[in-house]
Simulated assay, not measured.
Amino acid sequence: MTRHEKYQRLIDACRALPPTPTAVAHPCDESSLEGACEAARLGLIAPILVGPAERIRRVAEACGADIGGLEIVDAPHSEAAAAMAVQLVREGRAEALMKGSLHTDELMAAVVRRDTGLRTARRVSHCFVMDVPMYEQALIITDAAVNIAPTLEEKADILQNAIDLAHALGVAEVRVAILSAMETVNPKVPSTVEAAALCKMVDRRQVTGALVDGPLALDNAIDLEAARIKKIDSPVAGRANVLMVPDLESGNMLAKSLSFLAGADAAGIVLGARVPVILTSRADSLLTRLASCAVAVLVAKARREAADAVK
């Protein structure tokens, strides 16, 4: 499998879909503006650029980005841009949010604000959709960016968000490994106990839509030979396509290890709000930014279909 083939498949899956109206909060540097413009050119999103209008125009002129046909909503600074982008979603004018050159905390503060934000009954969580060159399928890793030390109750939402994402991306069989440092339940290691509890919640259909097993160590979650040596009999072990980590620290280190040591790319999305939130890093390549947009487009499509099904 060639590098980036997994991301290209995601982008190709969106080609027959109409562009998703997307509020881009504070696209005031070259990488964020070019990413939004290229996603628009490919027909992934229909961007609404929210931020200081003159500054956006100056950045576009400096980097040669064509924003002539794009709507600009003037907002004086990054915090106001985040609030206005969220407001566009609340008004029904946007079906996704995209982070520009503001801090993630600024955007997420506007998203989770109780009175004017985009909260739902579900806990907000982050997923990386990682293209790891040596792994045959895309790997979803959660949560490495939003929830620092989630409780068991919050982990149930984080797990369900990741499962729903995998289905939106067209994964035929979702196999979730709940990670710890070992594959046996040890009361001295709380993450193993919570992994076991989550698996029982799946048995009782409190979480649905996937094969889930844990605790599993990373090696026996993704390597069949490691699982065989440990004599782990599981439909998930060695074949996981979703990795759920114990906390933000371990998830962040796992994702960055894959990126910097294994040459992986990491598209990012926040779930659990009214609409998908595209989170990108300044270090992301253009293809990774486009893959993040494609993920959001597929999530928005799944949300529309779910809403239509209950009408």
Results as ranks from 00 to 15, higher is better:
residue 6 K to E: 11
residue 13 A to T: 07
residue 19 P to I: 10
residue 19 P to S: 08
residue 30 E to Q: 15
residue 35 G to W: 09
residue 46 A to Y: 07
residue 52 P to T: 06
residue 53 A to V: 03
residue 66 D to N: 15
residue 68 G to T: 14
residue 69 G to Y: 07
residue 71 E to C: 11
residue 74 D to A: 08
residue 75 A to M: 04
residue 81 A to C: 01
residue 82 A to L: 02
residue 82 A to K: 13
residue 88 L to K: 06
residue 94 A to I: 04
residue 95 E to V: 04
residue 99 K to I: 00
residue 100 G to V: 04
residue 101 S to T: 10
residue 106 E to F: 04
residue 107 L to R: 05
residue 108 M to A: 09
residue 114 R to H: 12
residue 119 R to F: 13
residue 127 C to W: 06
residue 128 F to I: 10
residue 136 E to D: 06
residue 138 A to V: 05
residue 139 L to R: 07
residue 142 T to G: 15
residue 148 I to H: 12
residue 158 I to H: 07
residue 159 L to T: 05
residue 159 L to P: 09
residue 164 D to G: 05
residue 165 L to F: 00
residue 166 A to S: 06
residue 169 L to D: 00
residue 172 A to R: 04
residue 175 R to I: 08
residue 176 V to A: 05
residue 176 V to D: 05
residue 182 M to L: 14
residue 184 T to D: 11
residue 184 T to M: 11
residue 187 P to M: 14
residue 189 V to Y: 13
residue 192 T to L: 11
residue 193 V to L: 14
residue 197 A to P: 02
residue 198 L to R: 04
residue 205 R to A: 06
residue 213 D to M: 12
residue 213 D to I: 09
residue 220 N to M: 13
residue 223 D to C: 14
residue 228 R to D: 08
residue 231 K to F: 10
residue 234 S to K: 12
residue 241 N to L: 15
residue 245 V to N: 01
residue 246 P to F: 00
residue 250 S to F: 00
residue 251 G to H: 03
residue 251 G to S: 03
residue 252 N to G: 01
residue 253 M to A: 07
residue 254 L to S: 00
residue 263 G to T: 12
residue 265 D to M: 14
residue 267 A to I: 03
residue 279 L to W: 05
residue 283 A to S: 14
residue 294 A to I: 14
residue 295 V to D: 03
residue 297 V to R: 14
residue 308 D to I: 12
